[in-house]
Amino acid sequence: MYIAQALRYRYSFWRYIVGIIIVAIGITLGQVPWTFAVFMKEGFAMFEMPQTELLSSLESNFSLFLLLLSYAVGLAALFFAVKYLHEQPILTLSTTRKSLDVKRVMFSFLITAILIVGGIFIGYLLEPESFQWNFNLVPFLILLVIAVVLIPIQTSFEEYLFRGYLMQGIGAFAKNKWIPLLITSLIFGGLHIANPEVASYGYFIMASYIGIGLLLGIITLMDEGLELALGFHAANNLFIALLLTSENTAFQTHSIFKDISTPEILGWEVFIEILIIYPVVLGIFAKKYGWSNWKNKLFGKVEKPETLKLSEEP
């Protein structure tokens, strides 16, 4: 039903192509301030600098602010495309419920926060030598403000784009649910291939990105809305940014701890994450919200609603 909501509005293929172009333009324009700031400091040498050096070129709070700003512009561009190109209410891109269920968002946020904080705490107990105390009050407080305001915007943009816009768009033409679930997860994971983490830890870490894409896609389809995915993604990025940074990550922050371990392929961590933690998360949500009929919700057909608002075929 969540995917089928797109069929009530203007869903021609060309509209999704134009929509993606609008979003790409928005993200590009949003990156101009960061690019300009780096250019003013590094000059033309920036075009020859490795990505890790580029990301650390500016003061980390300032750099994080400018980088996250681009997602705010991207989200505005996406909402513009949905509202004016598809003539689709943002609510129908968000959920099948009468309004966005904030309690769902907060419950998912809380569960994920507990998992992130607990995971970092366990990691510290097992390998304290891999952690360096990095806390500095004033820079941390600035980071806290930036992170609390802008990281949820960044993660919301990604959820609305992948689990919302693309999930509904691909599903509208595939006429089933598993193809958009798989494709959006692969695209979501693939777009992280340029992250410094991949160069540091190896391509095996891509399984983690694709895995989290699958998890967020599954909970979106099972729950018939983005609320749980919005809460999960926001908590994941927010608490990692506040608690743990590394020279090998895309976002280098004034976090409480710094990971100083030697980069290596994290096979066992990825294994635990995908095969243990994610199923536990699904189990908690399934129990809380009484999910059932998994086969139909994940592999069923996408059927056109009986009454369309606009009689437009793809």
Rank of each mutant, 00 (worst) to 15 (best):
159 E>W: 01
197 E>Q: 12
157 F>W: 07
224 E>F: 02
121 F>K: 11
179 I>Q: 03
136 N>S: 15
225 G>S: 00
208 S>H: 13
141 L>Y: 10
155 T>F: 02
229 A>T: 04
182 L>Y: 13
231 G>Q: 06
225 G>W: 00
206 M>N: 12
171 G>F: 06
148 V>L: 14
233 H>F: 14
163 R>P: 00
184 T>C: 04
233 H>P: 06
207 A>E: 11
158 E>S: 13
230 L>W: 00
223 D>W: 03
177 K>E: 07
127 E>F: 15
128 P>Q: 13
188 F>T: 01
223 D>S: 09
223 D>L: 04
149 V>M: 07
193 I>H: 14
127 E>H: 15
116 I>D: 02
229 A>C: 06
174 A>G: 06
129 E>Q: 15
144 L>F: 11
217 G>S: 08
123 G>N: 13
175 K>R: 13
205 I>K: 08
193 I>F: 13
173 F>G: 12
197 E>W: 09
221 L>E: 01
125 L>W: 12
165 Y>N: 07
118 G>D: 14
150 L>C: 11
183 I>N: 10
117 V>N: 00
195 N>R: 08
175 K>P: 01
167 M>A: 10
225 G>P: 00
176 N>H: 09
136 N>F: 14
163 R>H: 04
227 E>A: 06
144 L>R: 04
139 P>Y: 11
146 I>H: 02
129 E>N: 15
117 V>Y: 00
226 L>Q: 02
190 G>D: 05
200 S>I: 03
183 I>M: 11
188 F>V: 02
226 L>N: 00
173 F>A: 10
193 I>R: 11
162 F>D: 08
173 F>M: 14
190 G>I: 01
214 L>W: 12
207 A>S: 07
138 V>G: 12
153 I>V: 14
128 P>F: 13
156 S>C: 10
187 I>F: 10
228 L>R: 08
167 M>W: 05
227 E>H: 11
228 L>F: 05
171 G>N: 06
161 L>D: 02
198 V>P: 08
185 S>V: 04
224 E>P: 00
200 S>D: 12
167 M>F: 05
139 P>L: 09
202 G>A: 03
147 A>H: 03
197 E>V: 08
192 H>S: 14
150 L>G: 10
181 L>A: 05
182 L>A: 15
143 L>I: 00
196 P>T: 08
138 V>K: 15
147 A>T: 07
122 I>K: 09
230 L>Q: 02
125 L>K: 11
125 L>R: 13
204 F>I: 11
136 N>Y: 13
189 G>F: 01
204 F>Y: 14
154 Q>L: 12
179 I>W: 05
199 A>T: 15
150 L>S: 10
